[in-house]
Design a protein around this nucleic acid. Structure first.
Lengths: 201, 201
DNA sequence: CGGATTTTGGACTTGCAGGTCCATTTTTGC
DNA sequence: GCAAAAATGGACCTGCAAGTCCAAAATCCG
């Protein structure tokens, strides 16, 4: 069932996904027609349905996966190396920088809303992203606990959950306000709080 | 310019907004057709465009405003009386209870995504909601500072921003996971953090 | 009451975006 | 080089949902 894809085919498919993703990031999910994707990627309708037999649904799913992966990739290598306080701050910087650059254009917010309900797959993609993200944070906290930089009494899972939620909310508010104030406040206060745990221990 | 609205007209308009809001909450913005609203509210197409000359756009805007107001109303009277630690906990309980009941159905998430980009008004509604919400939290923190329950060194605005972001993210994650874990973690840890500030002071 | 205005119902129009189809060209593997 | 398979282009179809229009009923107000 794994359809045979020529090298050329593979390239075209990737070009479609990347182009659609860019278009969606720029103008929002429901403003992007299949024809826009065609124009923007230099492809024909035949190609779209050749590579995505399920039509827009399938394409959107592929785009969502692409964007989800990108979110984590953009945080590397910091996210996987939360092994010292400077490393945490570097991660903080990267996050803010990334989202400041992204501004009001959120790829996943719309995708979740659009495909979230009808496609069971979209939900899974977002859930998977959050799960991987939170796990990385948990790993970071655990590591800091192993070195004594964070008190062992701290509940790593719970703290990571709160931090992740804060980040998501911070980004959400960035979409409304256009400012990174909330995101910065969350990161600073939460990380400070983790730090304070070392003294309390 | 304020169009003349009979008592009956006023009632019909309200019925349309409330019905549309319910429908949207249940099935999502882009799954709801004007005909669904008509069927669900017992109105005709003529009525819809009579009360909302701008069509779906205007209706969605009215629904968004309706839902935004509801969000804050649902937190009263707790939100306006964050004057003691038990009061804060009561607010916490109300929030979790409310969102647990709401579950995966988020009215504003979709509305923001749908109308957010094209309608400048939708953005304003969400921004206004967040602003009022955050202000209420700031007032709570300030009051607690005036009674010495929170250290005066705490930056009320910054803390409120972080808390609000955490709540938003917690709700967002509730939409993905179906669990209130993140929301609870954020509330508990953030409020604890504010509390700790009293001792540090 | 009675004329003006608002409210209501529903048939009709319209545009458009997703999806289908097939003919043509290119690539693949032997 | 040549058949089979994959890639491409684009004309065409179709359904649907938003929006238009007007005529009939209800309501308001002097």
């Amino acid at each position: 069932m794994t359809r045979a894809l020529t090298r050329k085919g593979e390239a075209t498919r990737a070009r479609i996904v990347a182009g659609a993703a860019a278009e969606i990031r720029e103008r929002g999910v429901d403003e992007v027609r299949l024809e826009d994707v065609m124009a923007h990627t230099g492809t024909s309708k035949g190609q779209l349905f050749h590579y995505f037999p399920d039509g827009k649904e399938g394409l959107l799913l592929a785009v969502a996966q692409h964007e989800a992966d990108q979110v984590l990739l953009d945080q590397e290598p910091m996210l996987s190396n939360l092994t010292s306080w400077p490393a945490w701050l570097a991660w903080r910087e990267r996050l803010i920088e990334r989202y400041r650059a992204q501004g009001v254009k959120c790829p996943l917010n719309g995708l979740l809303g659009q495909t979230g309900r009808r496609a069971p797959g979209a939900q899974a993609i977002v859930t998977g992203l959050m799960w991987r993200w939170q796990n990385a944070i948990v790993d970071g906290i655990r590591h800091m606990q192993s070195t004594g930089d964070i008190a062992s009494e701290v509940d790593a899972d719970r703290s990571a959950a709160a931090l992740l939620a804060g980040i998501q909310g911070g980004v959400l508010l960035l979409l409304s306000t256009g400012k990174t104030d909330h995101l910065e406040a969350v990161l600073d206060l939460t990380i400070d709080s983790l730090r304070a745990g070392a003294r309390t221990a």
